[in-house]
Amino acid sequence: MMSLLGSGLILTLQIFVVTLIGSLPLGVIIALCRMSSFKPLAWITRAYISFMRGTPLMLQLMALMFGPYYLLGLELGSDWKFWACDIGFILNYAAYFAEIYRSGIQSIPRGQYEAAEVLGYSRSQTFMKIVLPQVIKRILPAMGNEVITLVKDTSLAFVLGVMEMFTQAKAIAASQVSMLPYIIAAAIYWGFTMVVEFLLSRAEKKLDYYHD
């Protein structure tokens, strides 16, 4: 049982890591598009964010899984479910992260940009050296919430038949007629989120040397 749950945990971790690697930077791009002064781009991005946040992730995963076949008649093979899973999670979480980035960037006072401009900082220097470090401090709590939600959301991959930890627990529980796999899986999820919480509180402490 433990080896099955363990292999599930590895897939869960994989979904978790791949989603963060993909969605953290993609969110920046989406946030910048959302704030673009080129209106059509801003509107399209806004609609995208609204859709991603306004429909269930489970439904989005299903659409990615079966859309290519139902809509286009494409046979994508049995590996497609892993792709659908990663792409679905990345696209969904990037929308949430984009909104957090946007609110963070917009909360930086104009005076910071103006001081940087008068001192001759380039636009990219201003963003990287002045704005971004302050944004990170401000959004860390909100980002933490999303990351912890992601730990648990990885279990939604069960709808695609990706054998992550929850899917494994379900299968074992059914075959052994036992609660135990669920209890162990719950303990592992909880431990996982506690690790994430610990890392976040360390980061918050590290940025606590100033306030504004």
Binding site: E114, A115, G120, Y121, P133, Y210
Partner: peptide
Amino acid sequence: LVFQNYNLFPHYSVMKNIMDAPINV
């Protein structure tokens, strides 16, 4: 330019506030 509300960079030390632009700009 000196602003009414200073607009110092809150995440930089006093020295870094003063030295960063001369060094990096």
